[in-house]
Design a protein around this nucleic acid. Structure first.
Lengths: 229, 229
DNA sequence: GCAAAAGTGTTTTCATTACACCCATGT
DNA sequence: ACATGGGTGTAATGAAAACACTTTTGC
């Protein structure tokens, strides 16, 4: 580390807001802090970035340590760096969000946390540090991204019904959608493949299962196709 | 600074890509580096963030030191933090972009720079550090933002003609627009005020001058209006 | 009077919206 | 047989796209 001076008295962390979707509600994975500062309060999972670690790597590490999942959607959102945002020194934080299938997550103990839990988004009104603001920023970002990129699927199981997909969009966007129009639109985009397979054991007419067709999407995108919902 | 350990051996900088618009071409303000590393190469203006300085403040400081302008549009884009992006240590950089009226800029000497100059975007193929990648990311961001936020005006003088505005959008978006449709659309959005004042000394029919009406836009936005071009 | 850019409406095309009934399954 | 959600088409509306000529000024 050849040059060091007053500027090298700071650190940077990554906070990763992990979104999950449960039946019809959006949730985020929070930790209850085990230590000061903000001991006992709920916070976003995060950690200091290690000296030999890229930022994205750090975000994936936090996610995997906490949930066991990897290879999921993850994107950088914004960097928060107010001088006094951390009571113990100058720490800026790079916020990421990730989208996981809540069923794939097996919550793991963490040295940082007393407790780890999925919390309904709507129920959260306060978090440690500036994490509430960070959460709001990430949520606005999710709401925008979901309209212009085919990432909704990341929150669902591999196989899903169109109604499940619609419920997902409805809760992310916080507005009701018309069933027929939704189906027409999403199917016309040609990024889903029908699995010729039906739901089992439901007390009503079973729905067709679909999955996202990443191949088809990739090709279409190269031809200039733009996903937009 | 109460806690310090191995993690506090890093620094963060802000790089600010400053866009200007000259007649019909997009330009960016670059500096020619005076010192190693990358001495003699063109780079984005930037600096380490001071210990008592917020990130946005740092970006504004860089802008003002270099150009004399302040109170202009400036927004954070992305944070670049690959382990080896800086040859002298772990330095992550938070990238910002700003939009200035090129006529208001009076380029100033800088301790960091041999030379400061406006460069046509299209002519740039290589920059110091990872600055070329940063520039591309900011440019993609500008192209997206300009369609959904009324920020094009920031690159023009206070008073401008509709044709000037159209040329601006055409060069940012890199595609030709239809004159009549463009005017219909932008005027229908009701965010411009006609100044009842004509161009002077032009060798053709003089055009009406307009300015952006921030008040009207603010009100319309509160009513749910969304700017979209 | 010529060159140069300003200004102006209508028609066609396409995407979005609104809307209601029958179907397949489990109990 | 009933309750539950699945699945389907059409007409009306509104936004976007295509398109050409007249006007005003300086030289």
């Amino acid at each position: 580390m050849p040059f060091q001076n007053d500027f090298f008295k700071s650190a940077f962390s990554v906070d990763n807001i992990i979104f999950g979707f449960d039946r019809d509600t959006l949730k985020v994975l929070l930790i209850k802090r085990a230590y000061e500062p903000f001991s006992g309060e709920w916070a976003l999972p995060g950690d200091l970035v290690r000296p030999d670690e890229d930022l994205d790597q750090a975000a994936f590490r936090i996610l995997e340590e906490l949930t066991g999942v990897k290879d999921v959607y993850l994107d950088q959102v914004h960097t928060f760096g107010e001088v006094n945002r951390h009571p113990r020194g100058r720490v800026i934080t790079i916020a990421y969000y990730s989208l996981v299938n809540i069923k794939n997550v097996s919550i793991r103990a963490s040295s940082f946390a007393d407790k780890v839990a999925w919390k309904e988004l709507r129920s959260i009104s306060k978090l440690a540090f500036d994490h509430y603001e960070i959460m709001q920023t990430c949520l606005r970002r999710l709401r925008r991204d979901v309209k212009f990129q085919p990432i909704g699927f990341e929150l669902l199981p591999e196989k899903f019904t169109l109604t499940e997909l619609q419920r997902l969009y409805e809760s992310v966007l916080e507005k009701d959608l018309d069933k027929r129009n939704f189906r027409k639109k999403i199917l016309s985009m040609n990024v889903l493949k029908s699995l010729d397979e039906l739901q089992q054991n439901v007390a009503h007419r079973p729905a067709m299962l679909y999955s996202f067709d990443a191949e088809k999407y990739k090709l279409a995108k190269e031809q200039g196709f733009i996903f937009e919902l």
